[in-house]
Structure formats: structure tokens, C-alpha cells
Design a binder for these strands. Structure first.
Lengths: 350, 350
DNA sequence: CTGAAAGCGCTTACAG
DNA sequence: CTGAAAGCGCTTACAG
């Protein structure tokens, strides 16, 4: 269908040189001296013919695809995961482009085998892959890693030396709780983002405990409730918290999506936020700043996660020295209205 | 770095046949009779060696990449556009996988030349591309199309016969306004999603006019205000509407993001929604159902847009007959609380 | 029923 | 300074 494109062969003929020379000139190979006239002649012909090198041929000859795969494991809650996709993907793509790599996007659908993505690696579609949301029982992933196929995880997979990039959940949770502490709260509840089998959930809970401990406040199991990714779980958990004695005056909800449900429960009880009860979320999904009152939360640097993952992966592919196995990115506390902090009115673009 | 993978050559040797036969058997080429024993022998060796065909070699020999590009033109408002990315991308990817294609994601950054993406096509990285958010002055796009490179647009580009997929903006706006009319409103204002040079803005405004006309309501220019993608513009536009005589009792805001600002203006005026004034948005971004009151809006089928675009593109690539140049997908009115319609409580997952 | 051979469009030692 | 040649791992007429 497409018009046949010119090849180096054609350029060589029209410029009256060999294909080798054409290749050397077009790739600007260093330490090769071709007479300036020849060089110019080749370049001119290439431009005239509107020549673009054939990527496939290049890949075959060089043994490199200069493409990385972004494997997107959809988690238990699609809406939730979708909140991270644009940032992650664009971060990864931008970093990739910086190094001259392309990005192949490969979601794993709920109805397909978990590790279908290995075909991408084994068939040499890609030089390396970023896997978002690894499963701890992913045998194929471990095999691939054994074979020294370049992999960077977004998330964590304990017990392996596969490189990974993640946020510092403990730190993030601590900043949220410290903020509430600094506002004078003592009875601070927590609703986790998910069951504690999820690493991130446990870590955020740890951060909560650490902050309290450092403030000299003793644990109160009643103030700890479990969320499960969605709003409904947050609503139910909040109801339980509201039946506690003493009533918490503030709640840290370790997921904005879960916090949406918690907010609903608060409204149902006709609590004024943040006057009667303060709330801080986690993630900074786009809805966070549109609810009333606008949700104070801990921002996850999705773009940075994607960028770092890609950059590290490319270092790995190109055998540059790797600094650390596990890269943790810092989160940022975004203070809005729901925590009751005196507001330095910040401009936020809707 | 990676372990060298077995090739057809190796399989041929170990199975004691020619490379041709191996290729024929592994590709299951029809109308080729290879003795069942030979076939089994080859298959067994392939399995034992954990053979995967080399995609690059295959591409070069076949002249097909079986990869499509999704070119993502970031619009004037990143937050806004990001709302569509997950659905579009996943729709496109799923359709692509169904036909055995891969998807290369290629964003065009604000700071790079608009038509950098043509390199993907000219270098044979992809067999075809989906371009989201075409610019009407994209000369390179037209050239590519001239050369018969397969392209499907997401959005519209008047004056060309390039295939495209979009939503039916006129229809969507009409359903929104009809809904308000059915609730008894007569003085219905509109805030456009963007300046009218954007096709979608004009179309949504047309839908608004059509609905009013069919209801026998005459135009009132004062009730028409222009939004500009973001919340601030919505807030400003709403302020203007609220100074109109007669005061509108309902407003159709042709973008949820703009509607967020309009809601703020309403709250500032201490208007009760929907009692004092009703509002209906457009897009159904994820924040729409978390604001208070939950926003009634017109849902854009992002997944369907991606799916259709990919499916049509693949038909084009494979030279299957194409049904129509311009595919318009229907939107769906999502009734929540902000319009004041009697609520049949629907379950929505947070 | 099966194989020898050309070709896809490049890169890259190697030789002169 | 430049070229002849091998090779990347497949597919695909073509021949027997």
C-alpha cells in the first residue's frame, strides 16, 4: 500500500559510492574519514530522496530494538490504577525519547494469563521492560530475570534483586500524620488503602505508627481500619471509626479513592470538615482537588516514577553502572482544605 | 547481555530438516503438506529449545511490523487530556491485540515539533497510526496520507478524506439540554468547553441550539458564554451568566473540567444545586461523580474511541473494505444529582 | 512432500 | 580514505 521508500542501496548508486560508505556517512560513525565532497554528495542525495533508514533492518543488523516495553498489570481496581497511567506512561516515554528509545505499551488484561508479556522479551520485540504491579508469584518474570533480560519493576517484589522503582510509602504516610499532629490532633485514625497483604498498605500503616510513636502517642487498635481500594470500603471503615471512643478528631486515609467514601460517611453524620474532623488522603488523584472541601493529600510523583523506571532500565540495557537496586521517590504533601491548616492560598490550575 | 536465543537454523539442524520446512511448520502455513512425523519432530524440538521467532527478522522478511502507533498530541490543557488517555489507549491496545498487533505509544510534547511522529511512519516502525488531536495545519500528516500511509484520526480534520473516529458532539449536547428541558427548565444557559474555533466546541453549541429550537425556545445570546478548557474559565463564565436577566435556572457546561469552576461560582453565590440552579456537564471525567452534588454529565466513550480507531486502522492496513470515512460514536447521559432529576439510585463504584 | 536459494535493508569487521 | 563481503533470522517463490 505504502509507497516503497528509498534505500541506502539507491543512495549509493545515485551518489556513485558503496553501500558501506553510505551507511557510515548517514550514521555519522566517528573515526571514519570520508572526503568532505563524498560526504556532502551522499547527504544531498539522501535529502533529495527523502531517505529514512529502515528501522527493522537496522534492528536486525544491530541486534537492538531500541524499544522498551511498559507492561501494565491492571490491579484490582481499574479506576484507581487508571489514575496513575498517564503520568507513568508519559514519564517513561519522555525519558525513553531522551535516550532515543521507543515505548511499546502492553496492558495485561484481567482475562489473560498474567505473564503473556514475556513473549515481548523472548521474541526480541523489546530490549527491556518496565513491569508495573508485579505479582509475587510471577515465575516467568524470575526466569526472564535469570536469563539477564533487563527488567525494572514499578512497585516492589520482595526477595529478588530485580531493580525497582517505587515511592517511599513510609515517608509519605509519616508526612501526612505529622501534619495532622502539628495541627494539634492526638486522636488520629487511619484507614488503609487496601488489605495489609499489599506491601504499600503495610508500609503506609508503618509510617502512621512511626509518626505517632515519635510524637509519644500510644497505639490504639480501634483507630486502625482497613480500606479496600474503593469508596465503599472507605465509607464502611469510616463508619466504624466514628463509633470509636474516643472519637478521632482527624483521619489519615491512605488512598484518595478510599477517602472519597470516608468523606461521604462524614457528610452523612453531618460532620463539618475540617472543623469537626480533619482528613488527609494519599495519591493526589485528579478528583482530590475538586471535592468539597478540597482534599489535603500526599502526592505520588507518577511522572517521576515513569521517568526513573525508564532511565534505570536504559542504563541497564546499555550496561551503564547501576547505583542502587531499589529506588524510592519522595512524595509531597499537598495542603488543601480538608486538614484545616491555615491556608496560604495557592494557585492550582483546574 | 541476554542469553542468545535459539533460531530456526538450530531447530532445522536438530530436527534434521531444512530451514524452509521449519518455517513452514512453525507458521502453520496452509496448503503445505509436511509429513506428520516431521511436523511433530520439529514442533518438539522447538518446544524443547523454548523457541520464539525473532520478531525483527520476521518484520524484515515480511515487510510488516504488525505494530500501530498511537500518537498523542497533548492539547492545551494536560489535565483535561489526561482524562482521556487511559480509556483511549486501552481501547486501542485491546483491539490491536485482538488482531495480533502491538501498540507503540508516542506523545508529542509541547516543546517538540508537531510532526515529529512522521519519522515513525517513514522509518517503518509502524504499519499505521492513530493520531489523537490532529492540527488542521499539519502538512506532514497530509503528505503521509497522500503517500497512502494508513492513518486514522481521533478527532476531526475538516477538508480531508482521512479516516476519523470521534464522538457525536451535537447529539451529546442535545441529550444534555433535552434532559434539562424535560425537567421543566426554559432559561438554560451554556458555557462552551472551549473557544469556538475548536470543532467540538462549535458542535456542542450547535446541539444546544438545536435542542432549544426543537423545544420552541428562542435564542438568547446572553445565555451563551465561552469556556476555555479549565476551571477558572468556567468560574468566570458562570459569573457572567449569573448577572443575566433572566437568570438561567439551568446551565449546560460542555466540559466537566470547566463545570468544576462553574460549580465554584454557584457555591460562591450560595446557590443550592440543583434547587436554585441545575447543571449538566460533558465528558464524565473521574472527578465528576465525586463532587457534591455529583455531576450529571455526558459520558464520552473513551475506550470505544480507542477500540474503533484501532479496528478501523487495522482494516485499512490489511486492505479490508472500509465502511465509512467518519465514524461517530454515541455518548451516554449519566444522570447524577446536579440536574435535579428524580434519582433512581444507581450503584456506582468509587 | 521437502530443500536450495534469494532477498528483506541494514551494520560491521576486514582488507586494501 | 573507500569498497567487497558476510551476516542478522526470518519468509517465500521456485524447483524438484
Amino acid at each position: 500500500m505504502t509507497k516503497p521508500r528509498p534505500t541506502q542501496h539507491q543512495i549509493a548508486e545515485e551518489a556513485g559510492v558503496s553501500r558501506t560508505t553510505v551507511s557510515l556517512v548517514l550514521n555519522d560513525v566517528p573515526d571514519v574519514r570520508v572526503s568532505p565532497e563524498t560526504r556532502q554528495r551522499i547527504l544531498k542525495v539522501a535529502r533529495r530522496l527523502n531517505y529514512y533508514p529502515n528501522a527493522t533492518a537496522r534492528r536486525l543488523a544491530s541486534g537492538k530494538t531500541r524499544t522498551i516495553g511498559l507492561v501494565w498489570h491492571r490491579g484490582p481496581n481499574p479506576t484507581y490504577r487508571d489514575a496513575f497511567l498517564p503520568g507513568l506512561l508519559q514519564g517513561a516515554t519522555r525519558a525513553a525519547h531522551k535516550y532515543g528509545y521507543h515505548v511499546l505499551f502492553r496492558p495485561i488484561e484481567p482475562d489473560e494469563p498474567d505473564s503473556n508479556y514475556v513473549e515481548l522479551a523472548r521474541s526480541h520485540h523489546i530490549d527491556g521492560l518496565i513491569l508495573s504491579g508485579p505479582r509475587s508469584d510471577d515465575q516467568q518474570l524470575l526466569e526472564l530475570h535469570e536469563e539477564r533480560f533487563p527488567i525494572v519493576l514499578h512497585g516492589q517484589m520482595p526477595g529478588t534483586d530485580i531493580l525497582s522503582v517505587d515511592i517511599d510509602n513510609v515517608y509519605g504516610a509519616k508526612t501526612a500524620v505529622n501534619h495532622l499532629l502539628s495541627l494539634g490532633h492526638k486522636d488520629i485514625g487511619i484507614i488503609t488503602n487496601a488489605p495489609l497483604v499489599y506491601t504499600a498498605s503495610q508500609q503506609r500503616l508503618d509510617g502512621y505508627y512511626q509518626a505517632l510513636e515519635e510524637a509519644g502517642i500510644s497505639k490504639n487498635k480501634d483507630l486502625v481500619q482497613e480500606g479496600n481500594f474503593d469508596g465503599e470500603s472507605g465509607q464502611a471503615a469510616m463508619e466504624k471509626l466514628l463509633s470509636c471512643k474516643p472519637n478521632p478528631t482527624a483521619v489519615f486515609v491512605a488512598s484518595d479513592m478510599v477517602a472519597m467514601g470516608a468523606l461521604k460517611a462524614m457528610r452523612d453524620h453531618e460532620l463539618r470538615i475540617p472543623k469537626d474532623i480533619a482528613i488527609v488522603g494519599f495519591d493526589d488523584i485528579s478528583a482530590a482537588r475538586f471535592v468539597t472541601p478540597a482534599l489535603t493529600t500526599v502526592r505520588v510523583p507518577t511522572f517521576g516514577l515513569g521517568w526513573s523506571a525508564a532511565e534505570i532500565l536504559i542504563r541497564l540495557i546499555e550496561q551503564d553502572p547501576i547505583v542502587q537496586t531499589n529506588t524510592l521517590l519522595e512524595t509531597e504533601l499537598v495542603i488543601r482544605e480538608s486538614c484545616g491548616a491555615p491556608l496560604v492560598r495557592q494557585v492550582e490550575h483546574a
